[in-house]
């Protein structure tokens, strides 16, 4: 099984890219700083989409409730519309029947988008090595952070969110790496032409 191709565009038209670049091909100061600023804003105001299907969704509820309160990390705006959210938290078992729905939701999310896979079932299928269960959502969509546990404790999920925030800060998420690779390819292509 192959993971699906991600349609990540290098961002902006070629003219804009050319204007933002110095003659030697490196990015101008302003845009890199802008990216860093944007990433800071993004990582501190994640809008999760809770793709809760099973037991982990109940623990996700615990994380949202008063005892743990995910809003302390800037991620309280739970949106049930993929168009309005940038963090997909897959909490619970994904079955073969549900997989097309998951892929559709992932594709509907606007970029940048990040994925946390919460719990054993979403990460690997857990102990359901069975005829109707997806053996890890990374069969279908790329995952940034895996949180083990069945279900994970609320602290583990909070740590997962914090870990993701750090990754966004360092540019290590799947989306950012793809974007960087696409930019590098575009730059290499432009240099080659010149």
């Amino acid at each position: 099984m192959t993971s699906r191709d991600l349609s990540i565009s290098p961002g902006g038209g070629s003219e804009e890219r050319a204007a933002a670049r110095r003659p030697d091909g490196s990015q101008v100061f302003l845009t890199t700083k802008l990216d860093a600023l944007l990433d800071m804003a993004r990582r501190n105001s994640l809008w999760p989409f809770p793709f809760g299907t099973a037991c982990c969704a109940i623990e996700f509820m615990s994380v949202m409730m008063s005892h743990y309160d995910l809003s302390r990390f800037g991620a309280e705006v739970v949106r049930f519309s993929p168009r309005q959210s940038d963090l997909l938290i897959v909490a619970g078992t994904v079955t073969d029947k549900m997989a097309p729905v998951l892929v559709r939701i992932y594709e509907q999310m606007a970029e940048p988008k990040y994925v946390i896979s919460m719990g054993a079932c979403a990460c690997t299928g857990g102990f359901y090595r069975a005829y109707h269960v997806v053996q890890g959502i990374d069969e279908f969509i790329p995952v940034d952070v895996y949180v083990p546990g069945c279900p994970p404790t609320p602290e583990a999920l909070l740590k997962g969110v914090v870990h993701l925030q750090e990754m966004i800060g360092k540019g290590e998420t799947h989306y950012q790496r793809q974007l960087a690779a696409a930019r590098a390819a575009a730059r290499g292509g432009a240099d080659g032409n010149a």
């Binding site: 940034d144 952070v145 895996y146 949180v147 083990p148 546990g149 994970p152 583990a156 740590k159 870990h163």
Partner: peptide
């Protein structure tokens, strides 16, 4: 130890 996170399947 229950607070664990991984970024790849192999790491786990």
């Amino acid at each position: 130890v229950h607070e664990m996170t991984f970024t790849t399947r192999d790491e786990s």
